[in-house]
Design a protein around this nucleic acid. Structure first.
Length: 557
RNA sequence: CGGGGUGUGGCCUAGCUGGUAGGGCGCCUGCUUUGGGAGCAGGAGGUCGGCGGUUCAAAUCCGCCCACCCCGACCA
């Protein structure tokens, strides 16, 4: 492709509404253009990158025997009412009416549609198992679209759905898709780690997210080299139990010392010996949350336990509930519902507030001195021991690029997608669903592969394999560049910067666009019959005789 | 939705307590340039987000609306 024939509207300046590196680079390199909040147009260069990602995903699904379909983006309300999700999905579902007043939604995901379809054709155990997939535009009325195509309201997703005769088969399908996802990430040159995750609105029982580690990531993930990983919303670490002789409760005077740090210093006891007592006002009254002194309660975990509306009690409320001032609350003698982090259960001779001014209680032991419901509440920190192997855990931000769900019969029962088994019995099909954020992966790749000058496409994912630059727009260098372009274009996808602009502009744009291999022809080389092959990734340059270029270039692509 | 902020040619922006819009990049023409976003000369392009109000006079002050961005709850 000639630069003058395509459209690559690069920008020198950073558009004011972009913040993250991938968003900035996608805009600056002329890959995408915003039409409205969370709605993007894919320009030629961006579309080529998108096609690359799609192709890898499509090809590997096909190899796995998945069957590609294309379902409607526009779905009737009735279908969504059958699963109850017309109501459940809430404001996130883009709804619209036709001229007759019939209601539809723009599909955010396709469990209903595919289950209805499969239910129609799959009648016998002989028709199973089957896995369908599609690569399609999805619509979600995101609460807050942001970061360009990373969280858009219209985006491209690959969604696959497996159909099996029983749980065992569905489990195998799940495992096969899980393995396929790993293969796809590798083929995309995308670093990604699978972590256990929540199921959200899709539902189901077993679920993994595929997370691409990146500072741009919207979620926190916790993982270990041994393969264990979890979303911070679910993460936990190995708990070591303390073996000590339980001592009798003892009240100690702690005048004016409130925080764990202060009391810890005052009593000369480490922070992990303390129980932090947080009093919350929830929808059903007050509750306390207990975490170890050196831990903190995770907001997401907390929310799923005490509800979205819960808030910390104020000083007055604390006095009323505990009888003591803020900073001196403790679980002993408290009459309200208590939720404690699992680590508390294994603590011994702990310290917490005495629920009166200037006093703490030592040697608290559970369940001797208080009762609580134990759950996973704390935020896992980097370095905490892995629950599987005990090695230090890594905590990082990550971009969710894929999600696998074991669905069971949640949808097939509601949509009456059943089959007849060997015994002649009618059974609901057992399902799984598997999503990959295709457009988001383009952003994730850029987020993992860039420098201050621009994108550095991994080989194989770049919109073009080779870019040819003539360092002078006229004369022998340009003529030679033409010649080389024509020769290489037969074998490779080549972008030829044939613009009549200064060499500086071409180099800057090339750095920005990030084509992995660059061939530079200039007046200097013309004298010696040489050109240069440059690598975008490491900046290495090699001088090559023009007549050797065609054979040499194959080492670079 | 709650909190914060911004809207000025395609992009980045100046414009203080009102006096009728300026720069840089980009674009067009010509000449000179051509190995890291060139130089000179000329030129095009603006309902200052929209509507209403105050005023002799509004980009500027006031009100309402719209759009967009950031922080938070949701998710591929």
């Amino acid at each position: 492709m000639r630069y003058t024939k395509t459209l690559i509207p690069t920008m020198k300046e950073v558009p004011s509404d972009a913040v993250t590196p991938s968003h900035i680079l996608m805009l600056r390199s002329g890959m995408i253009r915003k039409l409205a909040s969370g709605i993007y147009e894919w320009l030629p260069l961006g579309k080529k990158a998108l096609n690359r990602v799609e192709k890898v995903i499509r090809d590997l699904h096909d190899v796995e025997g998945c069957l590609e379909v294309l379902l409607p983006a526009l779905l009737p309300k009735s279908l969504w009412e059958q699963t109850g999700r017309w109501g459940e999905y809430g404001a996130e579902l883009m709804r619209l009416k036709d001229r007759q007043g019939r209601e539809f939604c723009l599909a955010p995901t396709h469990e209903e549609a595919i289950t209805e379809l499969a239910g129609n054709y799959i009648k016998s155990y002989k028709d199973l198992p089957k896995t369908f997939y599609q690569i399609q535009t999805k619509y979600r009325d995101e609460i807050r679209p942001r970061f360009g195509v990373m969280r858009a309201r219209e985006f491209i997703m690959k969604d696959a759905y497996s159909f099996d005769a029983d749980e065992q088969g569905a489990g195998l399908s799940y495992d096969r898709m899980f393995a396929l996802y790993k293969k796809i990430c590798a083929a995309l040159s995308l670093e990604a780690v699978p972590v256990i995750a929540k199921t959200g609105l899709i539902g189901g029982t077993k679920s993994h997210e595929f997370m691409a580690p990146s500072d741009e990531g919207e979620e926190e993930l916790v993982y270990c080299g041994c393969g264990w990983g979890a979303n911070q919303e679910l993460a936990y670490s190995k708990i070591s139990s303390v073996k000590e002789e339980p001592l009798p409760l003892e009240e100690v005077s702690t005048p004016g010392v409130r925080t764990v740090e202060e009391v810890s210093a005052f009593l000369k006891l480490p922070a992990e010996k303390f129980i932090k007592t947080l009093i919350y006002r929830t929808a059903d009254g007050f509750a306390c949350v207990l975490v170890r002194g050196d831990h903190s309660a995770d907001p997401a975990k907390l929310r799923s336990i005490i509800g979205d509306d819960a808030r910390l009690a104020d000083e007055k409320e604390i006095e009323e509930i505990t009888g003591g001032p803020l900073g001196f609350s403790g679980p002993v003698g408290l009459k309200i519902k208590a939720y404690a982090d699992n680590t508390i259960k294994y603590g011994c001779n702990m310290v917490s507030g005495a629920n009166k001014k200037d006093a703490h209680i030592k040697n608290i032991n559970c369940p001797r001195d208080f009762q609580a419901e134990f759950m996973n509440i704390r935020t896992v920190k980097a370095g905490d021991p892995c629950p599987e192997c005990g090695k230090p855990l890594v905590v990082a931000r990550g971009i969710e690029i894929g999600h696998t769900f074991y669905l069971g019969t949640k949808y097939s029962e509601k949509l009456k997608a059943s089959f007849t088994d060997k015994a002649g019995k009618d059974l609901p099909i057992v399902m799984g669903c598997y999503g990959i954020g295709v457009s988001r992966i383009v952003a994730a790749l850029i987020s993992q592969n860039h420098d201050d000058k621009g994108i550095i496409w991994p080989r194989g994912m770049a919109p073009y394999q080779i870019e040819i630059i003539a360092a002078s727009s006229t004369g022998p260098a340009m003529e030679k560049a033409e010649e080389i372009y024509k020769a290489l274009a037969e074998k490779y996808e080549v972008l030829f910067d044939d613009r009549d602009v200064s060499a500086g502009i071409k180099f800057k744009d090339a750095d920005l666009i990030g084509i992995p291999v660059r061939i530079v022809l200039g007046p200097r080389g013309m004298k010696t019959g040489e050109c240069e092959i440059q690598s975008r990734a490491d900046g290495k340059t090699e001088a090559v005789k023009l007549d050797k270029l065609l054979e040499k270039i194959s080492d670079f692509t």
